[in-house]
Design a protein around this nucleic acid. Structure first.
Lengths: 335, 335
DNA sequence: CGACTTTATCGAACCGGTTCGATGGCCATC
DNA sequence: GATGGCCATCGAACCGGTTCGATAAAGTCG
């Protein structure tokens, strides 16, 4: 690999001039620039990004940290960010914390060690220690998905209250009153907001929520399955189940199938968030989906803005909250 | 951030001794080691990975390059690699080429610029230029999923011929003779092997393959959908469809549903490769799945072996081919 | 006890860039 | 024609580590 000194020797200029020629070509005379360029081309010189990062104290890499890169929700966002970053000559490093806070912390520290230019983070936790940690990160960053109280950073996400409210309203319109809710972990903002959307919409309609109809599915498949089973073995079963995310809702569908209940004939089902191949799942589940492309786009623009605009770090953090979209299926029956 | 010179000053030793103390503690006297350690702890010294990589000419990072990190197949492999790498103090950088060869090339070059210790690559292409490029990569590497003719590297994958043969045999056993095959791109090793498994098993059973029953689904959802439609509008429809991967098979299921055919009553369906939430798709599709955990494990061990063992690069490349597993569903009817 | 090996430590060069203050040539101004 | 400002270029220091040959002290052997 040729180095900058090789180029300098061939072009018969100093090393610093070569460096200058590449970083700000305007400040080098046309003749010298030409000599340097052809010398570089002759030996196939490419600047070593590692050495550049070390000297500059920052790289052109962006860290992307989520709990599960396999989740299509994050996948769409990632793709948007990658494409936008590439247009601005930045490079996305994807990492996966598996939802573990410790690992997330390690990953972020490692990325900062790599002198990343920016960070897109889907927070995996909450609480004072966590907030303190995130606040200690000096790198330009955008948080998304999970709004964490106390973190004063740009945030991009969906209106989860509305998501819960829309589906509840839909079920009420169809005549359902015995509506069950499989909730997520209440310390998560998305989960508590979705739940609040459910509860308040029920209250507005004057329908009482049966405490036995609210179960905790932890946003996971296994807990969702157990929670659904608890709902389905009750003597007075709900007529509709609202899953706070895709995993618990599909787990509920599986539980119904295994117990021999038909959806929607016996029990209606609705869920928040899309899932891959939802169109071939029978029945097609009525759902509210997030505009992942738009979310990804906003995250990308905001982050690149903070990275490239020198006086952007004086701008106060801002929240971007998008409305989700209702996608009717055939999993909800009128009663 | 404290540097190695701060530590040296406080511990009253030279910089090189501090460096030595961390890289090979055995070569420093116990008393000095202690002084250095407490000095480092006092100021919270952590070595800068960037500077280390620059000086050493290699980092402790492993590149993971695939066409679609959202694919659960790659997700399982990635997780295994991450866990194993972490145990050996290595760190996985995930990148996604979106299946584009140009981008894959850029990503790999960028990773090499980062002086990665090793590379796990799911090749996205084939042909002389591609082979030449991959062969030019000096970093320890393991290829997986797609076997590319001409690339002399470790390879880890499944027996795709067997996968095609197993499902074909299963359908034949159930009495099917009019079996259709939605193929993948024939230049891909996985696709051609699966197809070969189908054709040769049919031949062994003395059953002729109707040319109209072999269509190209490109391994994608959209092409698979069109291919399935071409099958379903024929006057003499097949009694069973074998999808060469999950995308084309599920696209076929969707096509059947849209045309009002029942699976398996009207047409049986089988596929190669699992899909997330396959248990809630009705009917549960009979399939042959790859042992992703085992694949990931072998990839991880092999790669780390090549990275850590100094004389591993003299070992010849080796192929690891695993047998896939048959998972019965209820999408295939006896006729 | 002197010669030889081993051990602990150090200084300097190096990895491959960036950056800033200094230098000298050139042109415009009064 | 001396003064001042601008422009192109350079040298040296720096980013934060690693590594190797040198050196001096300590240990081993006959």
């Amino acid at each position: 690999m040729p180095t900058i000194r090789d180029v300098a020797r061939i072009a018969e200029v100093s090393v610093s001039t070569v460096s200058l020629a590449f970083s700000s070509p305007g400040r080098v005379s046309a003749r010298t620039l030409e000599r340097i360029r052809s010398a570089a081309a002759a030996v196939g010189y490419v600047a070593d990004p590692l050495a550049q990062s070390l000297a500059r104290g920052r790289s052109r890499m962006i860290g992307f940290v989520v709990g599960n890169v396999g989740n299509p929700f994050f996948g769409d966002i990632r793709r948007e960010l990658e494409n936008y970053a590439l247009e601005h000559e930045h490079f996305v490093l994807i990492t996966d914390s598996s939802g573990k806070t410790d690992r997330e912390r390690d990953l972020i520290e490692h990325l900062i060690g790599l002198k990343i230019a920016g960070l897109a983070l889907a927070p995996s936790s909450f609480g004072p220690d966590y907030v303190k940690f995130v606040e200690s990160i000096k790198v330009p960053m955008v948080c998304f998905d999970q709004k964490v109280a106390g973190i004063e950073r740009d945030f991009v996400g969906s209106d989860n209250f509305l998501a819960g409210a829309m589906l509840t309203e839909h079920l009420l319109q169809l005549g359902h009153r015995r509506i069950a809710f499989i909730a997520g972990p209440q310390h998560m903002h998305t989960a508590s907001e979705r739940y609040r959307g459910f509860v308040e919409t029920m209250a507005s309609a004057g329908v009482e929520v049966n405490p036995n109809y609210v179960v905790d599915g932890q946003f996971t498949r296994s807990a969702g399955y157990e929670a659904a089973m608890r709902l389905l073995i009750q003597p007075e079963r709900p007529t509709a189940i609202l899953g706070a995310n895709n995993a618990v809702a599909l787990a509920a569908l599986q539980a119904m199938q295994e117990l021999g209940f038909s959806c929607p004939d016996d029990i209606s089902l609705a869920m928040i968030d899309n899932v891959q191949w939802s169109s071939v799942i029978t029945p097609r589940i009525t759902m509210v989906v997030q505009d992942t492309l738009q979310l990804g786009n906003i995250i990308a623009r905001r982050l690149l803005h903070r990275i490239t605009d020198p006086d952007a770090n004086s701008e106060p953090p801002q929240d971007f909250v998008l409305a989700p979209k209702f996608v009717p299926g055939n999993s909800c029956r009128r009663i």
